[in-house]
């Protein structure tokens, strides 16, 4: 066939799209701005719902890569243009290629939790994010808070940067509810005597075996779920975090002290997505994620023939959804290039 496809972004979506395209016989270049591929998955300790290790998952995905795939790391795409029936793509370092099709796999960026000033991230030591917690798990270090103590209580705050118009994010980040349940269980496994609380607005256990994991969190680990969104957190004299929340099901405000507070940071479009979309002339949508041609029928195509999307650049997804989306994108590309 000899057709050439450039995939932009070497996280799980880009890696899997490239692997699938190569298997279908296309020449593939995978461009990555960082020195190493893998995206956010590099830092993620374990994946829901099976607690599959992030490292193993990434290794398996990477193993699927054909040796014919050219991986162009440390290259930030600065030019992207449709010329007749092909595209020219160029990087900040002078790298340039032509392609018959382009797949955007630019992923997401983690919501910057500093923006929720009232939660005190960056101010109170024992307020951390879900990503910080994954790093702590992955480090294999003793599970202690920033004051060196084993926390007697750990709190998880759902929807940080998601479903919050105060930070301009109306969307649900989809994965945080189940991640909180997973992390809460992991905390209980490390600290069986700790009390663990999840503060949630809704629990969106949409995937297979997610509800089971939630039930296990209740039944086996006695993790408590309090329906209410945090209004603020402060620090007491011992460095504990005092949170205020309404117990909406009792209709009363509630105050509780925890030794560690974990903010379930949501997904936002990666900062590189919008400039790339602008270069191509893709319409911007209000939430900043790329709009596929049709959200039900054509989820990998865009309004520009030859430009495809896969993974979280078109909206929050789990790793398994991302991988399925990537394979589906490869088929959409193949369909386009054959015609």
């Amino acid at each position: 066939m000899g057709k050439h496809v450039v995939v932009i972004g070497a996280g799980p979506a880009g890696l899997e799209t490239s692997a699938s395209l190569a298997k279908l016989g296309f020449h593939v270049t995978l461009v990555e701005k960082e020195d190493v591929s893998g995206g956010h998955l590099k830092k993620w300790h374990a994946l829901f719902p099976t607690l599959l290790s992030g490292k193993d998952a990434l290794e398996t995905i990477t193993k699927g890569l054909d040796s014919s795939i050219k991986i162009q790391t440390a290259t930030k795409v600065t030019g992207l243009e449709a010329v007749n029936d092909y595209f020219t793509i160029s990087g900040h370092n002078g790298w340039q290629e032509k392609a018959d099709a382009v797949v955007l796999t630019t992923g997401f960026q983690l919501f910057d939790s500093h923006r929720k000033e009232e939660y005190g991230y960056g101010i109170y030591e024992n307020v951390i994010t879900s990503a910080d917690l994954e790093e702590l798990f992955a480090s294999g270090k003793a599970f202690v808070n920033r004051h060196g103590n084993k926390p007697e209580r750990v709190g998880f705050v759902h929807c940080v940067g998601s479903r919050d118009e105060k930070v301009n994010n109306l969307h649900c980040s989809k994965v945080c509810c189940i991640t909180a349940v997973k992390q809460a269980i992991e905390v209980k496994q490390l600290l069986p005597d700790a009390e663990v609380f999840c503060f949630y607005m809704d629990l969106r256990m949409f995937g297979r075996h997610y509800e089971e994991l939630y039930k296990e969190a209740q039944e086996k680990y006695n993790i408590q779920f309090i329906r209410g969104r945090l209004s603020e957190s402060t620090e007491d004299r011992d460095g504990n975090i005092v949170v205020k929340v309404e117990d909406t099901l009792l209709g009363k405000p509630l105050r509780i002290k925890v030794g560690l507070l974990v903010l379930m940071a949501g997904m936002e479009p990666a900062p590189d997505t919008k400039p790339l979309a602008n270069m191509l002339g893709l319409k911007n949508v209000s939430d900043g994620f790329i709009q596929p041609l049709d959200e039900v029928l054509h989820t990998n195509s865009t309004e520009i023939p030859g430009v495809f999307v896969a993974g979280t650049c078109s909206g929050p997804k789990s790793v398994s959804d991302t991988l399925a989306d990537a394979r589906s994108a490869a088929l959409a590309v193949a369909d386009y290039l054959k015609s």
Partner: peptide, 26 residues
């Protein structure tokens, strides 16, 4: 004060019940 002061409240009864009837947690 209407606020539930979780730290000040006594949780012994809940522990007893959770042991006597574990489906409470579900």
């Amino acid at each position: 004060d209407r606020q539930i002061d979780y730290d000040a409240n006594n949780h012994d009864i809940c522990k007893i019940i959770a042991k006597a009837e574990p489906t409470l947690n579900l």
